[in-house]
């Protein structure tokens, strides 16, 4: 069963302090599929991503990445897994003390015994893939936002991962650059058969690249389905997100008063 999916998330619950961030979240991503996890700010999508990357410890549930249960995995198993996944962070998270070329070469230098010339050529090739050929000598601070995202993508691709995570590819980019990134993601999947998980709040980009979309809201999954299923969903909250409607207040008058005056009662 675990061989059928690149990523399996089973009834995951997560807390931040005593606040529940994820509530019984389950989803599956097949090999070669582009899954977009969508949700507004505070929906829990970033937390879910951190869990899928084994950066946070699970409170309940299980996550299998490429067949490996990451909560039970040993350090060595996790290490091996991490050579097969690539992650492009929202902010890029390039090491600022290294040049762009060195950043992309870093995973190859650390994980392979390749000769340095080959490592450099390979890093340059990855930079060509994301249209950053010739920029390898620059430092991250010298790049624009869009270039940083592309460089981060190049680094994520350095080890030719089977599974790629991309956090907010289009956040903070102009429409043209963001659309170019979307094309790049599609190209990666189509030519390399890569499984790609994209976390975003951008509707347009989500509809363009996704095979399936999972919509998160307040830590729960509202819907998980194909692009058309999500577009035609009758769930009000999904339509709110799609139509960019502001959400109605969920508090009763008494609760609202309670929230405003809680500190007075406590004192």
């Amino acid at each position: 069963m675990s061989d059928d999916y690149a990523l399996e998330v089973d009834s995951v619950t997560a807390y931040y302090g005593s606040r529940r961030i994820l509530d019984d979240v389950s989803l599956r991503v097949g090999y070669g599929e582009i899954m977009v996890i969508m949700g507004g700010s505070g929906s829990g999508k970033s937390t879910l991503l951190r869990h899928m990357l084994a950066l946070n410890k699970l409170a309940a549930g299980s996550i299998r990445v490429l067949g490996l249960n990451i909560a039970r995995a040993t350090g060595e198993e996790l290490h091996k897994l991490r050579r097969d996944i690539g992650v492009a962070f929202q902010s890029g998270a390039l090491l600022s003390s290294l040049t762009v070329g060195e950043n992309v070469a870093l995973p190859l230098r650390e994980h392979t015994d390749l000769n340095d010339n080959i490592v450099q050529i390979s890093a340059k090739l990855k930079l060509e893939v994301v249209n950053l050929g010739g920029f390898d000598q620059l430092y991250p601070a010298q790049l624009s936002g869009g270039m940083i995202k592309r460089a981060a993508l190049a680094r994520a691709l350095a080890m030719d991962p089977k599974l790629l995570f991309f956090d907010e590819p289009s956040a903070g980019l102009d429409p043209v650059v963001s659309s170019e990134l979307d094309d790049l993601i599609l190209k990666l999947r189509n030519s390399l058969k890569m499984t790609i998980v994209v976390v975003t709040h951008e509707l347009e980009s989500a509809f363009k690249i996704a095979d399936r979309i999972t919509v998160l809201d307040h830590g729960r999954i509202l819907i998980s389905g194909t692009v058309d299923e999500v577009r035609n969903s009758t769930i009000a909250r999904v339509q709110d997100l799609l139509q960019r409607r502001s959400r109605p207040s969920e508090l009763s008058a008494d609760d609202y008063l309670e929230r405003l005056t809680a500190h007075v009662k406590r004192a």
Binding site: R50, F89, E110
Partner: peptide, 15 residues
């Protein structure tokens, strides 16, 4: 590096 997620990036790269 912690604030810029560079530490996270190192971790997920298996470094």
């Amino acid at each position: 590096m912690q604030v810029n997620q560079e530490i996270d990036a190192l971790t997920v790269m298996g470094i």
